[in-house]
Design a protein around this nucleic acid. Sequence first.
RNA 1: GCCCCCGUAGCUCAGGGGAUAGAGCGUCGCCCUCCGGAGGCGAAAGCGCAGGUUCGAAUCCUGCCGGGGGCACCA
Length: 547
Amino acid sequence: MTPAQLADLVRAVATEVLTARGLDVSALPGDVGVERPRNPDHGDYSTNVAMRTAKKAGVAPRELATWLVDALGGRDGIASAEIAGPGFINLRLAADAQGAVVGEVLAAGESYGTGDELGARSINLEFVSANPTGPLHLGHTRWAAVGDALGRVLAARGAKVTREYYFNDAGGQIDRFVASLVAAAEGKPTPEGGYGGAYIAEIAEQVLAAEPGALTDPDRDEVFRRIGVELMFDEIKRALHAFGTDFDVWFHERSLHDSGAVDAAVARLKDTGNLYFSDGAWWLRSTDEGDDKDRPVIKSDGKPAYIAGDLAYYLDKRARGFDLCIYMLGADHHGYIARLRAAAAAFGDDPDTVEVLIGQLVRLFKDGQMLKMSKRAGTAVSMDDLVGFVGVDAARYSLIRSSIDSVLDLDLDVLSRRSNDNPVFYVQYAHARLASLARNAADVGLAPGTAFGLLEHPREGDLIRTIGEFPAVVRTAAELREPHRVARYLETLAAAYHKFYDGCRVLPMGDEEISDLHRARLALCVAARQVLANGLGLLGVSAPERM
RNA sequence: GCCCCCGUAGCUCAGGGGAUAGAGCGUCGCCCUCCGGAGGCGAAAGCGCAGGUUCGAAUCCUGCCGGGGGCACCA
């Protein structure tokens, strides 16, 4: 019996009991569930349904709990039901009912953990979207890891996800980038406000290699722009791909200007009265969505402001059929939330079709000193740097496993000193150990069995219940847009497995005869390995056969 | 001044109202006669402060204190 099935049973029994007693069934909360108590004395699962329902139903919590316990006690698969504390109902499952979860995992295989509650949603997930003026730094790397994992998690729960990268290749930042390239090519110092990293000189060199006459070309800047920006794009794409993060759509802001989409979007907003004219500029009422001031869309010099591109871009996304647009932005962009929502509202959409996830910074420490991440200074810690230090798996995992709400401090000395310092190896080790076990089992002719009722050891029960949690963990991670929950769950699962492995012998000892218990335990191991692999897959982290 | 995020063990971080608050690393002490010791068992150690809501608050609300990040007709 899975937790979901048990919750269904509790709900059904509660409904029966209330009905039989002539009480209001609507007093039941909509999300009747079971949870795993921390204290094993409190059973395999517990439910607080009696406490949550009692007041509305007009009965004492413990009295209602008594009725529920009586009704639950005799049900198939329930070994015991008892009241505790203020009205908790603590449940124990029969070993065979609980063990059936193992069979479900084996049957579901790679699809265990997936669901379809997001099936109706077509989601545009935009993340990273770094300006093509320099290599991806640590902050971008965090979004690359988290965004990619979120995309996988959303897809696992049924959403149709398009991962998208928006290149801001139309504004003044690009002009400065180009000017920096030209200066480098001419051997001149970095211009005021330009970019001075070593990569600038490298790209300038490549431009000259591709177009030897670039410096004397009448359209010199245009040549450097065309080739230089393209080289930067390629570099960013290469780094992301090497990081295991690929996008479905690489969107160029410039295309919106070139195609007239920006003008069209602005015109439409003027027509519908969603822009107002003041002080020579056209303004969007972003204050309606909580902004502290309205924002100009057309500047008083007649040129479109940056936000004009955002408006056209939003319209483009909607035209492509997305019913939810998720933007992952850094903490320094939190002011954009109101603007982006206002954009949706201005086009007549529900602002909730725009969901902005704000992630905090990553700080890197080495020798106790914080490393600055300034691209301009050229001392940035890049995605490649981090990967070079710790590898893709550890980099992704360490960035994903924390909530994006918290500033993340990574210590390079710790991460690069010993691999064991990173929890990813704890999880991967569990998988590798299971893979090894499977090889050994095959060598002695042991095959998985189905006598799950024999799995009565406390650590077997704990492992089975942990495996049973996985689908709900993925569902919650998708719903809350928090892929770090998957990582933390995997650490719990790995711990449950290691404890089981320490306490329960799987393979026959010496010339011991193979028994149904051996076969059932092997099946449990196969299931555990499947869940570890599925979970690591959601994070884009490898599940190694050997380490 | 206004807005956003954070404050939980020595450190890095989990804990979407529930019973005795967890993990990794670090410290101390155990377990190698067989499946991978990159493991297991045990110990010390913590919810910034004050109110409020609730049967019940690390979790929700308010205020304060502390830290970080934002508040452009730049992109």
